[in-house]
Design a protein around this nucleic acid. Sequence first.
RNA 1: CGGGGCGUGGCGCAGCCCGGUAGCGCGCUUGCUUCGGGAGUAAGAGGUCGCUGGUUCAAAUCCAGUCGCCCCGACCA
Length: 572
Amino acid sequence: MRWSQTYIPTLRENQSDAELVSHQLLLRGGYIRKLASGIYLYLPLMQRVIEKFSKIVREEMNAAGGLEITMSVLCPAEVWQKTGRYNTVGKELMKMKDRHDHEMILCGTHEETVTNLIAGEVKSYRQLPLNLYQIQVKFRDEIRPRFGLMRGREFIMKDAYSFDATVESQKESYQKMVDAYFRIFERAGLEVLKVESDSGAMGGSTAHEFMLLVDTNGGEETILHCPSCRYAANEEKAVFKDLNKPEIDSEMKENEVVETPNAASIEEVTEFLKVDATRLVKTLIYMADDKPVAALVRGDRSVNETKLKNAVNAIELESATPAQVEQFTKAPVGFAGPVGLKDLTIVVDPLVAEMKNFVVGANADEKHIINVNFERDFKADKVVDITTAINGDGCHNCDGTMEAKSGIEVGNTFMLGTKYSEALNAKYLDDNGKEHPIIMGSYGIGITRTPQAALEKYFDDHGIIWPVGIAPYLVEIIPLNLDKENIAAASEIIYNDLNEAGFDVLIDDRPERAGVKFNDADLIGMPIRITIGEKSLNDNKIEVKLRSSDEVIKVDVDKIVEHVREVVQTLK
RNA sequence: CGGGGCGUGGCGCAGCCCGGUAGCGCGCUUGCUUCGGGAGUAAGAGGUCGCUGGUUCAAAUCCAGUCGCCCCGACCA
């Protein structure tokens, strides 16, 4: 492609509203433009990146037995009403009416649509297993879109759905997708970590996320992982062993209400009572589907709201307002405690259950109770892990210590069980003629988010450094001065030869000065740069430089195709 | 939805407090010079100052409303 014939509107200055490097680079490099909040247009270079990545995804999905289809973006609301998600997904589900006043939704995912399709068609175990996938635009009306393509409202996703007759078979289908995912990301030049995750509103049991670990501030999620046994989970899900166990008294002491003026926060109470935070218990009040819950964790720890939500089987969980806290505890925020609490579900973390003689709020202004003991002074409705794991916690699997890393989710896999097939009546007959719901799985890869996520890793001060697998072009040719006949002629020959050899080539044929071309080339980030200028051309040579290195290699003009072929092998 | 901020040529911004001819840098067009890391010079094009209403002799500027956008939080891939 000739630069003059395509459209690459690079910008010299950063747009003010781009926060992440990756977002800035896509804007500046002329890859994307914004139409509205969270809605982007993909310009020619981005289009090529999307195509490159999609091609890899297609090839690997097909190799894993997936069948590509395309489903509609719209879906009648009643299908979503049948599975209950019409209400549970909440406001991010875009709802609308057509001219006949029929309620419709814009799909943010397609479990309902695909299950509805299968329900009418697949009737026998002989037709299973089946894996259908599509690469499609999705719409989720995010509360707050940000970070460019990383959290847009409209985005492209590859979503696959597996259908199996047995649990065994479903596990195989799941593993096939997991294996395919590793191949896909590897081909795209991305090293990903598979982590355990919470299945959330998707339903089902097992779920994993594929995370790209980044060092920039682009990470959207914290991951805990154990280097010795390879256990990895996101913060929502991660379980741990406490390595910071405080000493536990042997005897229970008499509890006692003490005055704690102006001491509401953990810091203030530890300061005032001169005790370590590990001798305190935090009591946090939440509303779980409008029912009050008291969550107790050790003073030095935080509540993991996902774990808590699962513990109380809630669809919605939010922290109580100060007014609600007062209503349930009869005390202002900061003085809640479990002793004497009524009408609340009390959830106690195991770390709290094993403590003795600890400090809690007294449910009275400026008062705490010391030497409180679980079971003796209050009971729990549930004792279950509701603490957030942090960097340095012990691995629950082995003796290792877990590290916290920042990552971006680029793919996910869910075992869905029969939630959708039962709701939408997708059933098959087994070899005994007995009817069963089909067992499902769902598998997503962010087609537009992944390349941007990659850029959080692959860039330098000058711009993008694409991995070969998803670069819009492999080679960019820079003829330094097209007015010189020998340069123009050599450029044409090289451009044609590389094209004919099957490489994706971009030639910067603009009448720009060298500096502009070099800077733009660094900005848009093609892996290989070929410079054609007088100096070298006089010796019948041209210069080859990798975007990822500073080294310039002079190559004979007639050996260039061969050279590029060799160099590509060494590139990731 | 809560808190903070911003809408002025394509992009980045100043002007607004204190009303009176709309300005700067980059980009764009044309000429000449220059030509291996974002050139110099000269001449130009391009703006209903987000929108609506009000105050005023006069509004980018003051007032009210409204729409859009960004940041922090809850939410989420």
